[in-house]
Simulated scan of single mutants.
Amino acid sequence: MTEPTQQPVPSTATSDPLRILITGSAGFIGSHLAERFLNEGHTVIGVDNYISGQRSNTELFQEHPRFTFIEADVSYGIPYEGEKLDWVMHFASPASPPHYQQFPVETLMVGAQGTQNGLKLAHAHGAGFFLASTSEVYGDPLVHPQPETYWGNVNPIGVRSCYDEAKRYAEAITMAYHRSRGVNTRIIRIFNTYGPRMRPDDGRVITNFVHQALRGEPLTVYGDGSQTRSFQYIDDLVEGISRLMMVMYHEPVNLGNPDEFTMLELIQVLEKGMDTNLNVRFEPLPGDDPKQRQPNIERTRSLLGPMQPVSLENGLERTVQIARLNPS
């Protein structure tokens, strides 16, 4: 496949304000998107049922004159009857293993029915549709790093399948609506992202490590700590989303930091930043936990142009500072 050559666009800022509906607006990523768009002068309609989102994230904007919130489960419909939308952005879903394994049916439903309801709404309004997919569609990858052309190595009935397969289906129906009904779609595959507003009980590695370290507890390392992840600070993800909205490209795009760290290397960076020695407790590796995860970002660079990502050291410093103010 020939990689895209579109010229990058620096932001979502346009001459006219947009009306953007965000499902999952009370979540970690959704709340940061709402903040970005409101700061750019757009109108935001947030939708969430708080299955994994936080009411405190909605409260950040509840007094803003261009923010409206709808409490609803988008798997059963999106009860929006307002003015014409420019974008429907589908970010609703439990996203951490503890949460989607606690709500497996709901996770599958929001990936299937929730995505279709978002696509129907976008189609009715002539709006763009933006799908938040995930690097989990690659499963435990046999190709490294992972390009968008890799079809993945996913266990369709494993403990993580409710999330993996929900997102794979969501991508399929998004492309079907684009090809058969002309919906202007975008698909991103999000790699490990961290930063302020994550739930203290999120269950993903950086949140676990930071809060365990602040409580003086041993850090829980699964397996021997040699598995790798690539960590992206939330500001970089939001910038990538903003740029992709303005590029006419419909196939999946990886959004992640290509710098790869083992879990033990991550601990070393955290120790240095906190200027302390951290103890470690080893636990068995969870089922279907991927051993490697690193994005190939050639397509991303071609579409979005050069970016200057926040380093892991700086991102962890910011995350620790916020966590000290909001301890679990």
Score class of each variant (00 low, 15 high):
residue 1 M to W: 08
residue 4 P to H: 03
residue 7 Q to K: 12
residue 12 T to S: 15
residue 17 P to Q: 11
residue 18 L to G: 06
residue 32 H to S: 04
residue 37 F to N: 05
residue 40 E to P: 04
residue 40 E to K: 04
residue 52 S to R: 00
residue 54 Q to N: 07
residue 65 P to D: 08
residue 66 R to V: 08
residue 67 F to W: 07
residue 69 F to Q: 09
residue 71 E to V: 11
residue 73 D to W: 08
residue 77 G to K: 11
residue 78 I to T: 03
residue 78 I to F: 08
residue 83 E to T: 15
residue 85 L to F: 12
residue 86 D to H: 15
residue 86 D to T: 13
residue 88 V to C: 06
residue 92 A to E: 02
residue 93 S to P: 05
residue 93 S to Y: 05
residue 93 S to C: 14
residue 94 P to H: 07
residue 98 P to F: 03
residue 99 H to T: 11
residue 104 P to V: 04
residue 106 E to M: 04
residue 109 M to T: 10
residue 112 A to R: 07
residue 113 Q to G: 02
residue 113 Q to M: 14
residue 128 G to A: 05
residue 132 A to K: 04
residue 140 D to G: 13
residue 140 D to M: 11
residue 144 H to L: 14
residue 145 P to G: 10
residue 145 P to W: 09
residue 148 E to S: 09
residue 149 T to E: 14
residue 150 Y to C: 03
residue 161 S to T: 09
residue 171 E to P: 14
residue 181 R to S: 06
residue 182 G to M: 01
residue 185 T to G: 00
residue 186 R to M: 05
residue 186 R to K: 15
residue 195 G to N: 00
residue 195 G to R: 00
residue 196 P to L: 02
residue 196 P to K: 02
residue 198 M to Y: 03
residue 198 M to A: 06
residue 199 R to P: 00
residue 206 I to V: 10
residue 207 T to P: 00
residue 208 N to W: 02
residue 209 F to M: 15
residue 214 L to Q: 07
residue 214 L to A: 09
residue 214 L to H: 10
residue 215 R to Y: 02
residue 220 T to A: 09
residue 220 T to Q: 10
residue 223 G to M: 05
residue 223 G to V: 07
residue 229 R to P: 04
residue 230 S to C: 15
residue 231 F to E: 01
residue 231 F to P: 00
residue 232 Q to A: 10
residue 233 Y to H: 06
residue 233 Y to T: 01
residue 240 G to L: 00
residue 244 L to D: 01
residue 245 M to L: 15
residue 245 M to D: 06
residue 252 P to N: 05
residue 266 L to A: 10
residue 278 L to W: 00
residue 281 R to T: 09
residue 282 F to A: 09
residue 282 F to N: 06
residue 285 L to P: 00
residue 290 P to C: 07
residue 291 K to Q: 14
residue 295 P to R: 12
residue 299 R to M: 12
residue 301 R to H: 12
residue 302 S to T: 08
residue 306 P to M: 14
residue 310 V to L: 03
residue 317 E to F: 09
residue 322 I to T: 09
residue 323 A to C: 05
residue 324 R to I: 10
residue 325 L to Y: 02
residue 328 S to A: 13
